[in-house]
C-alpha cells in the first residue's frame, strides 16, 4: 500500500525535484498513522488467530503453536451445546425482529419524513431514548415486566425485548432515506390518476425497497450480535448463539476452552457472512452509526 501523502504523488517524480522533497517532509506523520493502524490490525489479527488456532489445536501450552491439530472440538461443541437448536432459535428470533420492526417502523418513518407537526420533537425524542440508554439499564426493568407477564424465557419475550432498539434504529435509517425521495413523485402519480393504494404499491414500495433492505440487514446484524437484552430475557429454550456462548464461558471450568473457542469461531463466521452480505447494500459507516444525531 502506498503511503498517504498530503497531496497526490506526482506522476513523474523526476520532473519535479521539489515534489519529492515535500514528500519526504510529509513522511513521519504518514508513518506514525500507518504504524498505529498497523499495530491495531496486528493485535486484532493476533486475537483472532489465537482463538482460531486454539479451536483447532489438540493442546496448547507455552509454545508458539498448538501441539497437534484436530477438528473434534467443533463436533464436541455442536453436540454439547445443542447448537442446531440454538441456531434455529437465533434465526427465528432475528427474522421475527427484522420483520416486526420493519412493519412497525417504516410507516412511522414515512410520517416523520413527510410531515412537520406539533410534537414532532417529542416523538423523535421517544425514538432516540432507547438508542441512548444502554441496553442493560432498560433491560433489567424490561425483564422484570416480562417476568410479571410470564413472557420472559420464551421466544416471544426475546423478540419483544429486541424490538426496543430495533424500531428506533429502523426509524433513524429510513427517515433520511424517505426524505431524499422527492414527494413530487407521489404527487405526479396522483395527478396521473393513481389511487392511494396504487401509489403505495406501485410507486412508494419499489422506491422504499432498497432502504428497507438496508435497514432490515442492519437490524439482522445487530439482533444477531445483541447480547445484553437477549441474555436478560431468555430462558434455556430461547437462547441465541451469543448468549449460549457467554453462558458456556461463565460456567466454564468443566468445559475445555477449545470447544468454547470453536463455538466462538462459528459465531464469528456466521456474523462475518452476514456482514459481507450487509456490506453489499450499505456502507461501513452505517453499520456503526446508531442515529444521525
Amino acid at each position: 500500500m502506498s503511503a498517504v501523502l498530503d497531496r497526490p504523488a506526482t506522476a513523474a517524480p523526476g520532473t519535479d525535484p521539489d515534489a519529492g522533497r515535500r514528500r519526504i517532509a510529509i513522511k513521519p506523520g504518514a508513518w506514525i498513522t500507518w504504524g498505529v493502524l498497523g499495530f491495531f490490525f496486528l493485535n486484532l489479527l493476533g486475537v483472532i488467530v489465537t482463538v482460531l488456532l486454539n479451536s483447532f489445536g489438540s493442546s496448547w501450552f507455552r509454545s508458539w503453536l498448538p501441539g497437534g491439530w484436530t477438528g473434534h472440538w467443533y463436533s464436541d461443541a455442536w453436540s454439547e451445546f445443542s447448537l442446531g437448536q440454538v441456531l434455529w432459535t437465533t434465526v427465528e428470533v432475528t427474522f421475527l425482529v427484522v420483520l416486526i420492526s420493519l412493519v412497525l417502523a417504516v410507516p412511522a418513518s414515512y410520517a416523520l419524513a413527510r410531515r412537520d407537526f406539533p410534537g414532532k420533537k417529542l416523538v423523535m425524542g421517544l425514538f432516540v431514548l432507547p438508542i441512548l440508554v444502554p441496553p442493560i439499564a432498560y433491560g433489567i426493568p424490561l425483564a422484570t415486566v416480562l417476568y410479571k407477564f410470564h413472557l420472559a424465557g420464551s421466544v416471544t419475550g426475546v423478540v419483544l425485548a429486541n424490538l426496543v432498539p430495533s424500531i428506533p434504529f429502523v426509524v433513524f435509517t429510513m427517515t433520511p432515506f424517505i426524505e431524499q425521495i422527492d414527494p413530487k413523485i407521489e404527487a405526479a402519480a396522483r395527478m396521473c390518476g393513481a389511487r392511494t393504494w396504487t401509489v403505495l404499491s406501485r410507486i412508494l414500495a419499489p422506491l422504499l425497497l432498497p432502504g428497507m433492505l438496508a435497514a432490515g440487514i442492519l437490524v439482522l446484524v445487530r439482533t444477531f450480535g445483541m447480547f445484553e437484552l437477549t441474555f436478560l430475557t431468555s430462558g434455556p429454550t430461547s437462547q441465541t448463539l451469543i448468549v449460549t456462548l457467554f453462558s458456556a464461558v461463565n460456567s466454564a471450568g468443566i468445559r475445555s476452552t477449545q470447544s468454547i473457542d470453536a463455538m466462538a469461531v462459528i459465531y464469528t463466521g456466521t456474523m462475518a457472512v452476514l456482514l459481507l452480505i450487509a456490506l453489499r447494500f450499505v456502507n461501513p459507516t452505517q453499520l456503526v452509526a446508531r442515529s444521525t444525531d
Binding site: 497531496r7 497526490p8 506526482t10 506522476a11 513523474a12 520532473t15 519535479d16 521539489d18
Partner: peptide
C-alpha cells in the same frame, strides 16, 4: 495540484516549488 512539467516564474522568482 502539483505540476508534472514546466515552471512558474513570478517576477524572476521560481514559485512552482512552493506550496
Amino acid at each position: 495540484l502539483p505540476l508534472t512539467a514546466g515552471e512558474i516564474v513570478l517576477d524572476g522568482r521560481r514559485i512552482d516549488t512552493l506550496p
